[in-house]
Simulated assay, not measured.
Amino acid sequence: MRTNPTGRQLRLGTELRKLRERAGLTATEAGQLLGSNQTLISNIEAGRAGVSPERVRALACHYDCPDKSLVESLAGMPGDRKRGWWEEYREILPGALLDLAEVEHHAARLCTAITVHMPGLLQTTDHARETFRQVVPDLSPPDIEHRVSFRIKRQTVLFRDQPTPYVALIHEAALRMQFGGPAIARAQLHHLLTMSERDHITVKVLPFTAGGFPGSGQSIFYSSGPVPQLDTVHLDQSHGPVFLDAEAQLAKYRVLLERMEAKALPPQKSRDLIHSVIQDL
């Protein structure tokens, strides 16, 4: 029995509970259909009990789920039993940060929209270090270095053999924030330009001239799952990451991102603006 299920395990349980409730079944009834009891169903849905791909398919069948793509995507969630690199930080960093790395690792596509910070997946080591030095309450030097190394390791999703497609919508304000001074800011912008040239990475800048836009007051990180129902929104709050996966929430943030992207400059004009900001430093 798990005592600390991961975010992915919790999400699988949540989706199975949604299917059961849509079928109008109680946990007791679902347990009987599976030849078990209510306790097992409750533990599966809470992420406390492991569940095989075959059992996921059996539950979906009992729940009369007609969406084969969703069923197979759910069945694939417990299939990867390897420990992710983020488990090295299990006793060092908050669990929500590890859940974020796990979501990124399994994502089919990633998109972020950010106003005053550089996206974590595109930060240099020096820039990341400076951002963590601004955390309140102050982090100790070892804690800062743990978070820096963790952030840099998260970027492996952009460098692996089959890198994850990534779209970054960055406001001009973030380009002009000089974390650590002009030298670090200049290096960060050059790194951003280099990354934007990769085929699977799209960087679009929202210029000051775009005016107001939906979602301007928050940073949004959208992770696309193998099917839309398994998408996840991550909001970066001062007290830690917050994950959203309700259908209405996902629909809302899809619209926000679409509207923000519509106001952003195309990739080449975005690179031209980044070059201009570098010259101003």
Rank of each mutant, 00 (worst) to 15 (best):
L273M: 02
S270Y: 03
S52I: 11
E197L: 00
S238T: 12
R20S: 00
E88H: 14
P5Q: 02
K263D: 10
G84V: 03
E87Y: 13
D80P: 03
L250C: 06
I201K: 00
E104I: 02
G180M: 00
L256Q: 14
K204T: 06
Q279F: 08
T194Y: 02
W86C: 01
G35Q: 10
V71I: 06
D64P: 11
V56A: 09
M77R: 10
A210R: 01
Q218M: 14
T194A: 04
Y63H: 04
P142E: 13
G120H: 00
T26N: 12
F221G: 09
G31Q: 10
F213D: 08
D80C: 01
L98P: 07
Y89H: 06
T209N: 14
L122C: 01
D143H: 09
V233P: 03
D272C: 02
A30N: 06
A173E: 11
T112F: 07
I41P: 03
Q123H: 04
P53V: 01
G50S: 00
E15K: 06
E87W: 11
R147M: 08
L230A: 08
L97W: 00
L250S: 05
G211V: 15
T39P: 06
E15M: 09
H62N: 12
L98E: 05
L244R: 15
E45S: 13
H234G: 11
Q123A: 00
H239N: 13
P94V: 01
L19G: 01
V56N: 03
C61D: 13
A75R: 04
L250P: 01
G79T: 12
E145C: 09
A49V: 04
V203W: 07
C111A: 15
D199H: 13
A264L: 06
A96R: 02
A101C: 08
L230C: 12
D280S: 12
T112V: 14
E87P: 04
H106C: 05
Y166C: 00
L122E: 05
G24R: 10
Q155R: 04
P241T: 05
E145S: 12
Y253T: 12
H239W: 11
R83F: 10
P165K: 02
I278T: 08
L100N: 03
R254L: 14
Y253L: 10
P226F: 05
A58C: 04
V233R: 09
C111Y: 12
R160L: 08
V71W: 05
K153C: 13
H275E: 05
A30Q: 05
H106R: 07
L169Y: 09
I92Q: 02
S238N: 12
S42N: 15
R109E: 15
G47H: 08
V157W: 09
P266V: 10
L122D: 04
M260E: 13
W85T: 13
L281R: 10
L10V: 09
A49Q: 06
V255K: 15
A23R: 06
Q268W: 06
D67C: 01
K82M: 02
A49T: 12
